[in-house]
Design a protein around this nucleic acid. Structure first.
Length: 467
RNA sequence: GGCGGCGUAGCCAAGCGGUCUAAGGCGGGGGUCUGCAAAAUCCCUAUUCGUGGGUUCGAAUCCCACCGCCGCCUCCA
């Protein structure tokens, strides 16, 4: 039985999907006005892995991750650049997919964009007006009446009274109550707009997720996930709108990941860059970033630091070395081992960890234990055990977490460069045979200086390019 | 002020009432390999869980107090 922590009840609950055998989940995606940073990557990695785990446990999963492609930030940035907001958003959606792919994140089943669902959004807003939960102002804005929805605050644990102090009314707004939030915003000059029953305007921030999730997953679905900073107001508002509109429970389980914190005060500008997913992948590699994120429970905050990423990169390298060592000695199609009691015990343990609110640190620890087993088995010539360990790491558990999953990211020099290095290695080995170690060592050291590391193994000298 | 969370080895991080003399990773120490290194690999590396009380046959795990951190409270993954 899978148990997950539900933000709504603030405790771990047994996971029982609404429709047996199926899981419908919605993950809040980024607002696309720039390249994503490592913080954006956390929910993407974690909930993609969680979805894979659900599939591993036999569920059919329908996953939706949206893009908010129209909002104030996009409009402002587009105006600054003097470009069309839609072009800007579409550009960064493309860039998002590039980054997500580089992190080994599988695409969701649906990636809806707000601007493709304006009709559904308008329908939802109209329904809320019809039901008396929303109202139009003379300016052409539409607001949701928070006080008409008694359960408001249920998700974030906030009380209406406490919210009043922080509520604000912008000049030009005509809210009946400062707590009310916009469902539809009247178009200002130089803003994109759509025709609606209330005049020209655009969707408010929260309504898109309600409209898209309902359209694609139904009025009620199983899991709604995102960063914990979205609990309030985004998810609280989404929930209020949706439940007011349908009269049904919106999402059964709410899952929220912790934030990634940026520590250290290194060179601020270039530092900002290193947190971009793109730069992080280039510097540390996909698996190191995944390991970094999956090594800590998804609900806890993580401190991002170069040092930790380097540690994780080393750990990942060790894993790959063992895997490749095994693959080399097989050098044909690697068979599927006969599942025995040891393997089944391992599988049970893996499931036990992940069933418990997706405890990936435990599952990761188990994978590293298996790496040790793999090495030991190879050292002692126990090929059968080695195959079993390899199979569990590379073909059963790795693909669930997306670790040691895709091919290893090593830069491979090719062509003449590669041949030159081979030539140098040949010369060095001749020197070594002739005991002219000064020359041999000079070749080795000079290659090392330019990032080519030589590894003298029993089978011969291998090399690897290191950043 | 309101709500929520955290403090476990040099660092990162699981464990949340007995199987804990506490997983896993990095680092460190030692061995193997090597001409020497590097790489790789193996072994070792917290009688102790922020502090002080309490509950219990038994606590890192529950309760209370204190100290120190952090997140959210309408931009935010």
């Amino acid at each position: 039985m899978i148990r997950i922590y539900n933000t709504l009840s603030k405790k771990k609950e047994d996971f029982v999907p609404l429709k047996e055998g199926w899981v419908r989940m919605y993950v809040c995606g980024p607002t696309v006005y720039g390249l994503i940073h490592v913080g954006n990557a956390r929910p993407a990695i974690v909930f993609d892995a969680f979805r894979r785990y659900l599939e591993y446990r036999g569920y059919k999963v329908v996953m939706v991750q949206n893009f908010t492609d129209i909002d104030d930030k996009i409009i402002n940035k587009a105006n600054d650049l003097g470009v069309n907001p839609q072009k800007l958003a579409d550009t960064f959606i493309a860039e998002y997919f590039r980054d997500a792919h580089s992190l080994g994140i599988r695409p969701a089943n649906f990636h809806p964009k707000t601007t493709d669902y304006v009709k559904e959004i308008i329908d939802t807003v109209q329904k809320l007006i019809d039901k008396g939960y929303a109202y139009k102002t003379p300016y052409g804005d539409v607001y949701f009446s928070v006080r008409k929805f008694p359960k408001y605050g249920e998700l974030s644990g906030k009380k209406i009274e406490d919210l009043i102090a922080g509520a604000r009314v912008e000049p030009g707004e005509e809210k009946k109550d400062p707590l009310d939030f916009a469902l539809w915003k009247a178009a200002k000059a130089s803003e994109p707009w759509w025709e609606s029953p209330w005049g020209k305007g655009r969707p408010g921030w929260h309504i898109e997720c309600s409209a898209m999730s309902t359209t694609l997953l139904g009025e009620s679905f199983d899991i709604h996930a995102g960063g914990e900073d979205l609990i309030f107001p985004h998810h609280e508002n989404e929930k209020a709108q949706s439940e007011a509109c349908t009269g049904k429970i919106f999402a059964k389980y709410w899952m929220h990941n912790g934030m990634i914190r940026m520590v250290g005060e290194k060179m601020s500008k270039s530092l900002g860059n290193i947190f971009l997913v793109r730069n992080a992948v280039a510097a540390f590699g996909r698996d190191a970033i995944r390991l970094f994120i999956l090594s800590k429970h998804y609900r806890s905050p993580i401190d991002f630091s170069e040092e930790i990423l380097i540690d994780n990169k080393k750990a990942v390298r060790r894993g790959w070395e063992a895997i490749e060592r095994f693959e080399k000695r097989m050098n044909v199609e690697i068979p599927v081992p006969k599942y025995d009691s040891w393997m089944n015990e391992q599988i049970e343990k893996f499931k036990e960890s992940l069933d418990d609110d997706f405890n990936t640190p435990e599952a990761v620890a188990q994978i590293f234990n298996l790496i040790k087993e793999l090495n030991k088995a190879m050292d002692s010539g126990d090929e059968d055990k080695a195959l079993k360990a390899y199979h569990l790491i590379k073909r059963e558990f790795g693909p669930v977490l997306g670790l040691f999953d895709l091919s290893r990211e090593i830069k491979r020099l090719e062509g003449k460069e590669s041949k030159l290095i081979d030539l140098l290695i040949d010369i060095r080995n001749k020197m070594r045979k002739e005991k002219r170690f000064d020359i041999a060592d000079e070749i080795r050291d000079k290659l090392s200086e330019i990032g080519i590391i030589l590894k003298d193994k029993k089978e011969g000298t291998e090399w690897e390019e290191v950043k």
